[in-house]
Design a protein around this nucleic acid. Structure first.
Lengths: 165, 165
DNA sequence: CAGGTTACATCGGCTACCGAAATGTTCTGC
DNA sequence: GCAGAACATTTCGGTAGCCGATGTAACCTG
């Protein structure tokens, strides 16, 4: 059993659109997501080893880069995570100096999380390495594949929305 | 900050194809994969709660359903996992009675892993629930989205291949 | 048959999550 | 104006998902 990729030949992209066994889609989609997640994590580990930043933290930094200050609950809702999860992540990020937590003066139960300069810098460095890596992989695809991946992104988001409805 | 989905309106599917900031693709793709993984895991937890089967184990069962007996190393190569990871998973699966391990007579260092009847049954039940769930989500998409997701799968596999090259 | 190379198993360690319970705040209705 | 419901968050304990290093047979090769 070779570690063959299930990507098949290039011709697959256009092949077998009418028959399309329905049940297979579920399997293939799940497999694709799993493979991509693993590949992304692995390539990040090797490409950006000098300052390991867990992906979950990166994603929070990205949100914070655009909406700051933010409350724990808002971050959790946006990322579809439990608030306890986000709370823990933010705790680590504070220890790492990436973000700061202040009390929301309007509601003292809530916290206002903001990026620190270090956080912004780390995020920028990470994003740079990550984009470089992903762009290389995307560039290795042919134009048709690249186009279809790009075009599928909004649909994939909508699919995720339906899944956690 | 509402927990808005980044999927946007339906019109987004066709919108902004020419400008397409290149760097954004990396970010969006990563985000989509993360969201889908979380959504898939969560929906499995809620849809198939009566007999929790970790996804990593399911994937091994699926491979074994098609190539059996298999050696640990082959399974690992195929799934792009470390052999120690697969070894551990198989250990759990043996405890759960899903697979059996025998010594490969041709090479006594190697093991020959096979599905048990229980394993086959569990896999079938799982696949059924999972397909039902995913098909429902896919069915909630409009025809164009569904088509593009399906069409993008081979390209996504190829992208994963390039990533772990 | 000595030494190097496999094929695994085991260990320790980290990320990534979740749910339940505890704590302090705010908001209601009376 | 105050008891109690509703909230925002934290803490805790637990599971899943991975990897690398190390140890141990079993193989292979000169």
């Amino acid at each position: 059993m070779p570690p063959q990729s299930r990507s098949g030949s290039q011709a697959d992209t256009a092949a077998t659109p009418p028959p399309a066994e329905h049940g297979q889609d579920a399997r293939l989609l799940t497999e694709a997501v799993t493979r991509l997640r693993r590949a992304l994590r692995a390539s990040i580990r090797t490409d950006y080893p000098w300052e390991q930043l867990p992906m979950a933290q990166v994603e929070l930094l990205q949100v914070l880069a655009e909406h700051s200050p933010a409350r724990i609950g808002d971050l959790a809702a946006r990322q579809r995570l439990a608030t306890s999860t986000v709370s823990g992540l933010i705790g680590q990020m504070i220890s790492a100096g990436l973000v700061a937590r202040a009390v929301d003066p309007a509601d003292r139960r809530a916290s206002a999380v903001t990026l620190t300069d270090a956080g912004r810098a780390q995020l920028a460095a990470w994003a740079e390495a990550h984009e470089r890596r992903l762009d290389a992989a995307l560039g290795a695809l042919d134009e048709a594949d690249r186009a279809i991946v790009r075009a599928a992104l909004p649909a994939l988001f909508r699919l995720a929305d339906h899944l956690d409805t």
